[in-house]
Design a protein around this nucleic acid. Sequence first.
RNA 1: GGUUCCAUGGUCUAGUUGGUUAUGACGCCUGCCUGUCACGCAGGAGAUCACCGGUUCGAGUCCGGUUGGGACCGCCA
Length: 590
Amino acid sequence: MVKRTTYCGLVDEKYLNQEIDLAGWVQKRRSLGNLVFIDLRDREGIVQLVFSQEINAEALAVAETLRSEYVISVHGKVAARAESAVNDRMKTGKIEVEVTELTVLNKSKTPPFDIADNVTASEDTKLKYRYLDLRRPEMMAAIRTRAQIVKSAHHYLDDHGFIEIETPDLTKSTPEGARDYLVPSRVYPGSFYALPQSPQLFKELLMTAGFDRYYQLARCFRDEDLRGDRQPEFTQIDLETSFLSAEEIQSLTEGVIAQVMHDEKGIDVKLPFPRITWNDAMARYGSDKPDLRFGMELQDLSEFFKDSAFKVFSGAVANGGQVKAIVAPQAAAKYSRKQIEAIQEYIKRFGAKGLAWLKVDNGEVTGPVAKFVKDQQAELIAKLGAQDGDLLLFVADSKKVVADSLGYLRNFLAKELDLIPANQYAYTWVVDWPLFEYDEGDQHWIAAHHPFTMPNEEDIHLLDTDPHAAHAQSYDIVLNGYELGGGSIRIHTREIQEKMLKALDFTLEQAQEQFGFLLDAMDYGFPPLGGLAIGLDRFAMLLSGRDNIRDVIAFPKNSKATEPMTTAPSRVASAQLDELGLNVEDAPEK
RNA sequence: GGUUCCAUGGUCUAGUUGGUUAUGACGCCUGCCUGUCACGCAGGAGAUCACCGGUUCGAGUCCGGUUGGGACCGCCA
């Protein structure tokens, strides 16, 4: 048993002249011969230990042999540092511990990278030695931010009558949505469980059971390619309620977020958060998850340019498309023609065929297409609210291409032009989503949210006539341009649910096979219900100021969905496969 | 599935037109040092230039492939 009085980072003047015990890792040894300083680190911070002949010769001798990341325990006296030796950059910089007893609890190899916040090692190296990476204070802080969010959410939801209930991780594969992770059944060779993409159906059934308010920190699994804000397994703060309206559910969600912001950031957010319809978000920001920390909105010039001599503009309008622009403030001098062309190349990935641009100079526009708009220039500048020195960027194309490319450009330029204020948290609800969206790849209609989403009351009749025009009672909560969470009012009658599935080209037989248990439940007193899930990983990422959710997951996967530390996924013994009745084809040994 | 970038001591990295003893910093090791905190000073060790093949008198460098990794598009109800 190692004795410990307090954490290294918490030793302060109240321990002055007291004998204390500490334990931790050696951050740094500074030897001046017969005077040795050791920075000792634990989860709360660093304190300086001092060893000398006068204090204890034996301890000094051992201190000389210490190296980075050795684990030690010490006994000593907390002493005030001399005025000249005070370190203002250290929380514990006014004191030091004069060590009389030193025990080496374990040695350490030289770590592959410094245990410090400015570490330069590659992501791969850091993940391979994740336990060392997590020793770094900024990593530990991010993981602790996550823990605080969880604690606050528990607190708020418990206080508001939510009951925490676990749902299965081994469940049934669902056809729509992401690819499932499959788990073979030993008892039924050839049959598979799936890991849940979300607890959606279970939480609805909990409402049927009458729990009324459910929540859970739900692990979700989706076998899709990764991104900075996407991991194959992630956690949702998942909740579901009975008998509440969309507005009431949003208000509860705001309560969770406000509690978290108060507890973790000390910020009392202003409620309610703004609401923007999906249509407006797409029109004004070119995104269904707009970053509201800055302006630079998309402005519609379709009408303005419908008769333009510039055929790219007028032609797009004539073909049912749009011309839209964003005004990049004081960016004219910052972007050369060549740089703008590079941007143009970049937005081609969103389908844009080109990027027209103008610079505003002395009340006039300049640039390659200026000649087409010369006679309208004053009107154009006034309409866009542009100033001298601004850069105007135009995309003329279909509605979708215009939104995608200018929406991307808006975010890109805001970053480059440093228009995004630091330490600001801009929450917004995006509401009134389309119920369906068209999958260009598979050439069919899919549910925009999921197939259990309730249409708007006034659109229910459209399910019989023009289902794909219907809008949904669904809502996303957006923070700083990230989809933080989303939810909806669910369908609770079999009649509407069957119409919905029909609109998605499910036959009744398919529906019965895949969701039969849900449809059956609808025959036994299924209450009106709705809920939402907040992405815990993204929330923690945003509140800890990181740009990758790996940083708030203790043991994440890399971008290729493997884990460099354990080397999962890995091959298994053929006996294991035999037991499962599985045959692996064409899988070379690695 | 696609696009693109990358791979050089433990770590990060320079390496020009194909010819160097493969550069530097940090780290590491040894010695000296009683007020350091980016300690200092002196010395030292440490590289299969990811892998396979090709071009060439000669390849870290050029070409082809493989592997691993990063970012992005598709995908993510």
